[in-house]
Design a protein around this nucleic acid. Structure first.
Length: 254
DNA sequence: ATGACTCCCAGTGGGAGA
């Protein structure tokens, strides 16, 4: 089983690339973030023609998530149950016996921002809900744009980024809080190239200089860990003429 | 460097992303 996550930064703009990518990789499930589409504009017909079922949850201008699957997803959940959140950031479904939770964790903007407070509260709610979900579904993956670089080795310039949003001790403690639920960072189950990032700023030739952060992650439960065959970041789409600033992350499970 | 780039909604600029 192959699962992937990709922050596409506008599905309207990136749909041709998503269709190409699906054809090339044929994942069983692909979680998208930052679709930036209201639900009436979601391109389900094009995805159906490409062989994918879609579940989607969007809003105007910002955020928006989707779950694309080759077989229908069941038990679909949108956003974190019990959290009053006007922003469309979570979609979950059960796919071939695996609970797939796709999340677009808030960015936080800066540590002195109200958005940072929202991010930390949102992560509290996510952890509480995921704890329940792990108990219900031992075979679970939590994937998406976490907007957290878990360690200094996930940051191109840890000195410059020290204490900055995405790299603060508070955010890293939240990441560890998720790990402590019995989850494992699939990417770190394998030897990886140094300076592996999943996001590069559009500005300042960051991709060409490989100045980025690893902030898109795939966490898997204990029950799935032994069956993880690979986990890679696919940099190829970032080389497109008009790319998302994020690259897809792919995991292969038994 | 209070930047850089890209996207969106708007509307001849500004917010947000990370």
């Amino acid at each position: 089983m192959k699962l992937a996550t990709w922050n596409v930064n506008s599905l309207s703009v990136r749909l041709p690339q998503v269709l190409d990518w699906l054809a090339a990789h044929q994942p069983d499930a692909l979680c998208l973030q930052e679709t930036k589409l209201t639900d009436d504009k979601f391109p389900h017909a094009e995805l159906t023609a490409a062989g994918y079922e879609s579940q989607w949850f969007g809003q105007k201008t910002y955020n928006g998530v989707a779950l694309l699957t080759r077989t229908p997803a069941t038990e679909v959940t949108k956003n974190i149950p019990g959290l009053d959140d006007p922003q469309a950031r979570v979609i979950a479904g059960t796919v071939q016996g695996v609970r797939v939770i796709g999340a677009y964790i808030p960015n936080g903007q800066s540590t002195d921002s109200d958005k940072f407070v929202y991010k930390l509260r949102w992560l509290d709610a996510l952890r509480a809900w995921v704890a329940q979900q792990v108990a219900l579904y031992p075979r679970l993956v939590l994937v998406g744009d976490y907007n957290i670089a878990p360690e200094d080795r996930d940051v191109h310039d840890p000195v410059a980024w020290a204490g900055q949003v995405l790299c603060t001790p508070e955010e890293r403690a939240h990441f560890k809080g998720l790990i402590d639920l019995g989850l494992h960072d699939a990417f770190r189950l394998f030897e990886q190239p140094p300076k592996s990032w999943s996001w590069w700023d559009y500005r300042n030739l960051a991709f060409r200089k490989n100045q980025g952060l690893r902030i898109d992650h795939i966490l898997v439960t204990d029950a799935l860990k032994a069956g993880v065959k690979s986990c890679v970041i696919d940099k190829l789409p970032r080389k497109n003429e008009r790319p998302s600033d994020h690259a897809p992350v792919i995991v292969e499970l038994d």
